[in-house]
């Protein structure tokens, strides 16, 4: 799937959790992706982490690092 679309969606999700404590926000974003994205989308965005410039916001990127800890979504 088109990775730039995934990046756009991840950034949008992150923006909407961007209040309050950072740890909570990161966990909430990772949880949202886990619950609503397909495996392929999760794998796609995790794989994209290894690109130099991801286009991801700092918060979104932190959440995807969190997501990548799940082996099922490893690239």
């Amino acid at each position: 799937m088109n990775v730039s679309k995934l990046v756009r969606m991840a950034n949008q999700i992150a923006q909407n959790f961007d209040v309050g404590e950072r740890d909570k926000a990161v966990a909430a974003i990772a949880d949202h992706l886990t619950r609503y994205w397909t495996v392929e989308m999760k794998k796609g965005i995790v794989a994209h982490l290894n690109q130099g410039t991801t286009g991801l916001s700092e918060l979104a990127e932190a959440a995807i690092v969190e997501l990548s800890k799940n082996e099922a979504y490893a690239a």
């Binding site: 799937m1 088109n2 679309k5 619950r35 609503y36 994205w37 397909t38 495996v39 392929e40 989308m41």
Partner: peptide
């Protein structure tokens, strides 16, 4: 694992998947 939403289906279709 959750499946595709309608817009995901369309995106995947355009990508040939």
């Amino acid at each position: 694992e959750p499946g595709m939403r309608i817009p995901n289906m369309f995106d995947a279709a355009v990508a040939g998947q």
